[in-house]
């Protein structure tokens, strides 16, 4: 299996996560894939997913949420 197959399998797996799992991952992981995760967050928001609601419920805080959605 080459890079392309492994990479696209990862993207498919990322896209299969629920909105809640994706939000949690975007807030808790700060490794080599964080940019990819944020791209998926932006993609879903553009598709109309209400991730903002989930961010607020996950973080349960006004100022912290602003920090994280300020991407």
């Amino acid at each position: 299996m080459g890079f392309v197959e492994v990479y696209y399998d990862y993207i498919r797996a990322l896209e299969s996560l629920s909105d809640e799992e994706l939000v949690y991952k975007s807030l808790t992981e700060n490794d080599m894939f964080s940019n990819v995760i944020w791209e998926e967050v932006k993609r879903r928001m553009e598709l109309g997913h209400n991730l903002t609601e989930i961010y607020y419920n996950t973080l349960n805080g006004y100022s912290r949420t602003y920090k994280y959605i300020n991407i």
């Binding site: 990862y10 797996a13 299969s16 799992e21």
Partner: peptide, 19 residues
């Protein structure tokens, strides 16, 4: 809310590990 896929999290972890 419930996740879209029951085992999406473990699928993601495996794919991440492989990459």
């Amino acid at each position: 809310r419930r996740p879209y896929y029951k085992d999406a999290s473990s699928y993601y972890q495996n794919a991440e590990h492989n990459l």
